[in-house]
Design a protein around this nucleic acid. Structure first.
Lengths: 194, 194
DNA sequence: ACCTGAACACCGTTCAAGT
DNA sequence: ACCTGAACACCGTTCAAGT
């Protein structure tokens, strides 16, 4: 039987769904193809390799979690929300952290510029902002990749997001909270149009 | 043919050697067994699973890089040196970062205590020290896992260690260098006794 | 006890052959 | 053009059988 045209986007979305269900580790190209109602060869026509597909999935998660800063939005709060947004989205896709972070080209020039500008707007010198940017990026990467929630629950700590935010605050202003917590960060996840 | 008794330690060492050569990705239990002159089944008698073996390798790297702080040693400089030590050792074993970091139990209570004490000795309040500790841990994890050197060389930056140290300094004291650079960090790698 | 090596149940990837 | 599905060259893991 022949199939309606298969697309890269469909493959990425289907892969992310399986990953959300069972984790990256248990994703196979065969299962993925089956879930799309396609053959193994068909999938490979649109995606060169499994590794490449996972990189695409990583970028997709990154894109879904990114939200530009509104003009009237507190710059540090925006950074904090962005990090927490990405953190939650990745936690829903076990094992994806490495693919979101692994290849540096995921951090787009736009994002770099937006963070840099936010930090300067918040009062840091351009040089401090550059260092803070890289520290924030690596701190966030570390949090995403470590089995953070395990550590936390082992210590009986209540809220991983609060601790994540505390780390960001520490980096940004030496421990003073960025803002009185205005409820939790708005969670915005863009989904591909069907 | 029969073999002189195989040990877990030999297996871990042989695995790390292969990893240093070709990276984790290309390590197979068959190749590993062959390099030990043993059979596949023999290896599996001493190690329950490949994943478990890699966790052991991660811990071994961690142990090799750890060096307790001398009484007369500057505490912040010690932290900095420890991080750089681990960073270099991991870079020599491509793909191992995830296994060094992945499971939180690698960060032993001893290390946690040593870092905490060093930070307090350096003048931080116990509460700040706790936050700084977790920020440092995640920052370091992020650096280890990201393909940092790629980013750096792309930007034409000269010395990845200098940048790593700058990040640590930023966390520890807001950008002021921890110490006038006294040459590079002493590199101490313990190797298992043969 | 410890080891061997064949066997099992999978992988990712390719490619002739179909429509 | 796009898809099928068999085939290839591997995996990690197990386990009867040997010593």
């Amino acid at each position: 039987m022949t199939r309606a045209t298969l697309t890269r986007g469909q493959i990425v979305d289907a892969a992310l769904e399986i990953i959300a269900d069972v984790g990256v580790e248990k994703l196979s190209m065969r299962q993925l193809s089956a879930s799309l109602g396609a053959s193994l060869g068909a999938t490979y026509r649109h995606v060169p390799t499994k590794e490449a597909l996972l990189a695409l999935c990583g970028r997709e998660l990154f894109d879904r979690s990114y939200r530009p800063r509104a003009d009237d939005e507190d710059p540090l709060q925006w950074i904090r929300d962005e990090i927490i947004n990405l953190y939650e989205l990745i936690r829903e896709h076990p094992g994806m952290a490495g693919y979101v972070i692994g290849h540096a080209n995921l951090v787009t020039p736009e994002l770099t510029a937006a963070v840099q500008e936010s930090l300067v707007t918040a009062g840091l010198t351009p040089e401090s902002a550059e260092t803070a940017r890289s520290v924030l990026a690596f701190y966030t990467s570390g949090v995403l990749l470590s089995n953070w929630s395990v550590v936390l629950s082992a210590n009986g700590l209540p809220d991983s997001k609060a601790m994540l935010a505390a780390g960001v605050d520490f980096i940004l202003r030496g421990g003073e909270p960025v803002a009185a917590s205005q409820g939790r960060a708005k969670r915005i996840v863009k989904r591909r149009q069907k």
